[in-house]
């Protein structure tokens, strides 16, 4: 197996081990005296009103959608950027033209969202 993957696995194991070890250690050191009042949710000192698992504002969803669109775009941009120079010499400026065309349509979408005031945070 590739040693890089083994090293990353070791980092994963260590990353998991530290919090688990720390939580276990603190279990022996900390007091544990639960009471009803302690286990209430914090709400400025008053008794909490209802839960907080409710419907949420739609604007977060709109930004999440925009994020997905542009994140997929970066997934295309990265390999393009890596091979840019080798393709530049074999197929000329077409390589730039294609990406500019692709970006143009995405930017068009961004401008549309901008004009529709999706990017406004109210």
């Amino acid at each position: 197996m590739n040693h890089n993957l083994l090293v990353i696995t070791l980092f994963l194991v260590l990353g998991l081990a530290l919090p688990i070890a720390a939580f276990t250690l603190s279990r022996f050191l900390r007091p544990d005296i639960p009471s009803v009042e302690k286990r209430l949710n914090y709400e400025s000192g008053l008794a909490p009103q209802e839960g907080s698992w409710v419907q949420f504002h739609v604007r977060y969803y709109l930004f999440a959608l925009l994020f997905v669109i542009f994140d997929v775009e970066t997934a295309f941009l990265y390999p393009w950027a890596v091979v840019y120079d080798s393709l530049r010499s074999s197929m000329g400026l077409m390589i730039l033209g294609e990406m500019v065309l692709f970006l143009f349509f995405l930017v068009l979408g961004l401008v549309y969202a901008w004009k529709k005031k999706v990017l406004e945070w109210k």
């Binding site: 720390a22 939580f23 250690l25 603190s26 279990r27 050191l29 900390r30 007091p31 544990d32 005296i33 639960p34 009803v36 302690k38 286990r39 209430l40 949710n41 839960g51």
Partner: peptide, 12 residues
Amino acid sequence: LLTKEDIVPERA
């Protein structure tokens, strides 16, 4: 922090 109580809210 290591010696502070670990409180988990009732409704969490």
